[in-house]
Design a protein around this nucleic acid. Structure first.
Lengths: 193, 193
DNA sequence: GTCTATATCAGGATAGAC
DNA sequence: GTCTATCCTGATATAGAC
C-alpha cells in the first residue's frame, strides 16, 4: 500500500500538472490528497519541501517508466535503449504529462529560486551522464567530450520540445519525430570518419 | 525623455528578470521605478495590467535588438546570420537576460494558461520560419520539410539551453558552444550526399 | 499625476487536541 | 500521525490629501 507521503506526492504531481508550481496551493494539495494541510507540513516542513520531494518523486517515477522492461522480452541494444529513454518522455499519458509539466515548471521556477537550483542541477547531471553513457555504447570510438556535448544537446532539446508540446505548439507525434531525427543526427556526428 | 509609464515598464522588465512573472511584487516594482504603488495602479489599473503591458514592451524591445544592424558593417552571409540569430539569445547582457527570462516565463505560463498559447504559437512560428529560410540559403538543395524540422529542433534546443543557462545549470559560453555544435550537425545533416 | 495611509484578503505556517 | 482551528505575514488594491 502506498504510504501517506507517497499519496501526497502523487497528488502534488497532479496538482502541479494542473496548476503549475506557481499555482500549487498547499490547501488545494491537501484537498487533492484527501488530507489536512497540517499533515502536509508535518511531513514536508514547508511548501518548498513539498516541491523538492516532488521533484525527487517524479524523477524516480520517470526512472521507472523509462527503464522498466518486460523480463521475458529481448534485451534492448544500446541504440534502442537510448531512443527509449528519450522518446518515452514524449507520450500523451497521464503520468508522462504530469512528469513533464512538473519538470518544466521546476526548471522555470529554478530560474528565480536558488533553493531548487541545486536539486535540479544534480538531477540533470545524472540524466545527462546516463544518456552520454548510452551514446558511448553506440559509438565506442567517440571521445568523452563529444559524448557529453551530444548528451547535453539531446536532453536540452527534449526539454525544449516538451515545453512546446505542453504549451500546445506542436503535436506529440511531431515532437517524437523531431527527437528521433536529432538522435540520428547526433549519432552521425559521433561516427568515426 | 522617457515617459512615466515607460519608466515603470523598464523597471518592470528588470524586476521580472530578477524575480519572474510570479515573483513580481507591485511594491518592489514601485521601489525599482522610484514611484509609489498608488501610481502603478493609477497607470495600469491592476497587477495583470502591468504584466500585459510589460510583455508587450519587452517584445518591442527584442524586435529592436534582433533586427538592428550596423549599416556600415559588411552584410552577413546566411551562415553567419543564422548563427548570429541563434547565438544572440545566449548572451549575458541585461537586455537579453530580461528577454530570455520573460520568454521562458511566458512559455511556462502558457502550459497552464490557454489565453497565452495563441500569441506564443504565432511568435514561435515566425521565428521557426525565419531560421528555416536561413538554413535554406545555406543548403539550397535540402527539401523544405527537412529545413522545417531542423529549424524546429534548433529553436527548441535554444529554448532548452536558455532555460538551463538561466537556471544556473550551465555557463553561457558552454551553451553557446553547444548551440554552435548543433548548427553544424544540422547543416551536415542537410548537406546533399 | 502623485503620494501616504490603510482596508482587505489570500495563503503559508503553527499550536494543540486527539 | 492526523486533524481542526487559528494566527500572521505579505501582497493587492483603494481612498483621499495634495
Amino acid at each position: 500500500m502506498a504510504s501517506r507521503t507517497t499519496q501526497i506526492l502523487e497528488a502534488a504531481a497532479r496538482v502541479i500538472a494542473r496548476r503549475g508550481v506557481r499555482g500549487l496551493r498547499v490547501e488545494e494539495l491537501a484537498a487533492e490528497a484527501g488530507v489536512s494541510t497540517g499533515l502536509i507540513y508535518y511531513h514536508f516542513k514547508d511548501r518548498t519541501g513539498v516541491l523538492r520531494h516532488t521533484l525527487e518523486f517524479i524523477n524516480d517515477r520517470a526512472e521507472r517508466y523509462t527503464t522498466a522492461r518486460d523480463p521475458d522480452a529481448e534485451p534492448l541494444g544500446p541504440r534502442e535503449e537510448l531512443e527509449q529513454i528519450l522518446l518515452l518522455e514524449l507520450q500523451d499519458t497521464q503520468e508522462v504529462r504530469e512528469n513533464s509539466s512538473a519538470w518544466g515548471e521546476l526548471r522555470a521556477s529554478a530560474v528565480f529560486d536558488p533553493v531548487l537550483r541545486e536539486d535540479l542541477a544534480r538531477a540533470t547531471l545524472v540524466w545527462v551522464q546516463e544518456v552520454a553513457a548510452l551514446l558511448g555504447q553506440v559509438q565506442p570510438m567517440a571521445p568523452a567530450s563529444a559524448l557529453a556535448s551530444a548528451a547535453e544537446r539531446l536532453t536540452a532539446l527534449l526539454e525544449g520540445l516538451s515545453m512546446r508540446w505542453l504549451s500546445g505548439g506542436i503535436q506529440v507525434d511531431h515532437a517524437r519525430a523531431l527527437m528521433q531525427g536529432a538522435v540520428e543526427a547526433e549519432l552521425a556526428g559521433l561516427k568515426p570518419r
